[in-house]
Every structure is written in structure tokens, then in C-alpha cells.
Design a protein around this nucleic acid. Structure first.
Length: 269
DNA sequence: ATGCTAACCTGCGCGC
DNA sequence: TGCGCGCAGGTTAGCA
């Protein structure tokens, strides 16, 4: 589920239900996620959540006794449910909150994570990350500078969180199409001018997706609704064999770093 | 250092 | 209807 817009939407959807609530009790039914859920996580019990934060695709919940760091992996989701809600097979973690609601983590593939970080200390995991794509630090000039000497495919390059965070497979495909750049081009061989276009497309697409995510916020509470995909029109992702929306030529698919990459051989070079 | 591969795990859709 | 295969929105460890 999570590309950056969905994590941001999750944060905004949860905020009204979690902010200033006390964590009464933490239940871990399945501790074997991407990393084992650390015992220290229980130090958050009886603590009040005073701030929610998103960094890259990580969701941070701050208390005076430490910070919970969530990652949703490929298939994770966080929702607020009633205490009597039926517990499903992949509902791995519950936080009983002081407002009589339950924060529930669901993750069939178990690629997600819940980590603990002590107060007033930096999170090692986050220290190596590149800038947020919607920040002023992320520009075409930045990408161009970082790409010097790189022979790897530009698609792999922009999906590398050490360069810029939050560009997942869907939006990598979409932004390269919009920028007219072939996904297999060597990152180091692309001009500053083209990187400026690419950076702008990444910003536009992500901002638009976040904006549209707002319309699905109610799905985060109760029911069995999932955030799901945004209404945003996908031009190439998942459209292998269909006509290019610009020139009608059949869209091609290749695998780059084991990820599906769909593009138009006429519009992207 | 750079860049690629395998690996973590379950569910789903497809072809036979 | 059932079975086997390939694929899925992420990220890191480990190796050449």
C-alpha cells in the first residue's frame, strides 16, 4: 500500500484520534515483522502521544518516554477501530487508547516494522535519508549533483532513499513518463535541464496524490475500508501493452532492479 | 565506493 | 475446481 502520499494520508487520518491520547495498553500478537518488535515498545504504555510526524515513509509517534516508529512495508495499514472489533488473521498489533478506541496494525506480508527510539536521541534509521521530495532542498540541481558519475538506471537512482525519499515504484514510473525520460538511462548522463523537469514532475505528482488522499480519510476509522489507491490517473503504471496516453504507441515493460517499469519508447528517451 | 541480487512473507490472478 | 507460477505499492544485508 504505501507510497509516500499514503503514509502522509495515514498520518493525517490518524492524527485527530491519536493526538493527546494516552496509550493504555499495547498488545503484540505477532512480533516477527521486518525487524522484531522491541521489548522497549512497552515503555510507551501510559504515555501520552504529543506529536505525530512523517519522515520519508516512516510514521513517528512521540511521547515523553520515547518515540514509536512505524513503517508499513508493502502491505501494512494502521486504522482506528472500536475495542470490540473482530481481530483478523493479520491484525498484529493493537494500542488501546484513552479515548476508548484502538489503533490497529494490519500487515499480511509482515514487511512493515514497529521500532522504539529513546527520547532526545536521533533515529539511526532516518539519519541516512535524502531530502523530502516536497521540500525546497529537493531540486533538479540537487539531483544532478548527486548523479555525477552514476551508471545506474535513473529509475533506480530516484527510488534510492539515500538520494531522495518517498519516490516509490508507481510514482517513479509516472514521473519519468511525464518528464519524457527513459527509465533505463544512466543517472549520470542526464542533463541538469532534464533533472529540473523531473524534480518538478515528482513534486507535482506527489502533491496531487496527497491532496486527493484527503478524500479517503474517513476510511481510516471503523469499517473494513482501506485507503486504497488515489483517484489520480496513472498514465503508465500497470498499463503494459496499452496505448501511450500521449502518442498511442504500445507501452513497454522491463524490469529494473526487480521492479516493474512501464514506459513509452517514443515519448521517453 | 558502487551497484546488483536475494531475501523477508502472504495473497491474488492467471493459464492450464 | 484445483494447482502451480509469477507478481505485488519497500527496504536492507551481503556480495562482486
Amino acid at each position: 500500500m504505501p507510497e509516500l502520499p499514503e503514509v502522509e494520508t495515514t498520518k493525517r487520518g490518524l492524527e485527530p484520534w491519536l493526538l493527546n491520547q494516552r496509550i493504555e495498553k499495547i498488545t503484540v500478537r505477532q512480533a516477527k515483522l521486518r525487524w522484531p518488535v522491541p521489548e522497549e515498545i512497552f515503555q510507551l504504555e501510559s504515555q501520552r502521544i504529543f506529536k505525530l510526524e512523517r519522515r520519508a515513509k516512516y510514521l513517528l509517534m512521540h511521547t515523553e518516554a520515547g518515540t514509536a516508529i512505524w513503517h508499513l512495508g508493502m502491505s501494512g495499514s494502521l486504522r482506528v477501530v472500536e475495542p470490540n472489533a473482530v481481530i483478523g488473521k493479520h491484525d498484529h498489533i493493537d494500542w488501546q487508547l484513552s479515548n476508548e478506541k484502538v489503533l490497529r496494525y494490519h500487515d499480511p506480508r509482515k514487511f512493515g516494522a514497529l521500532l522504539f527510539n529513546p527520547p532526545h536521541s536521533d533515529v539511526a534509521l532516518l539519519a541516512q535519508l535524502g531530502p523530502e521530495p516536497l521540500s525546497d532542498a529537493f531540486t533538479g540541481a540537487y539531483l544532478f549533483a548527486r548523479a555525477r558519475g552514476k551508471t545506474q538506471a535513473v529509475k533506480t537512482f530516484i527510488m534510492d532513499a539515500h538520494q531522495v525519499v518517498g519516490v516509490g515504484n508507481i510514482y517513479a514510473n509516472e514521473s519519468l513518463f511525464k518528464a519524457g525520460i527513459h527509465p533505463e538511462l544512466a543517472a549520470g548522463k542526464i542533463s541538469l535541464k532534464r533533472y529540473e523537469i523531473l524534480a518538478q514532475e515528482i513534486k507535482t505528482i506527489l502533491a496531487q496524490a496527497i491532496e486527493q488522499g484527503g478524500t479517503t480519510l474517513r476510511d481510516f476509522v471503523g469499517g473494513d475500508g482501506k485507503p486504497g489507491y488515489f483517484a489520480q490517473e496513472l498514465r503508465v503504471y500497470g498499463r503494459k501493452g496499452l496505448p501511450c496516453p500521449k502518442c498511442q504507441k504500445t507501452l513497454q515493460e522491463v524490469r529494473i532492479a526487480q521492479r516493474s517499469s512501464v514506459f513509452c519508447t517514443k515519448c521517453q528517451h
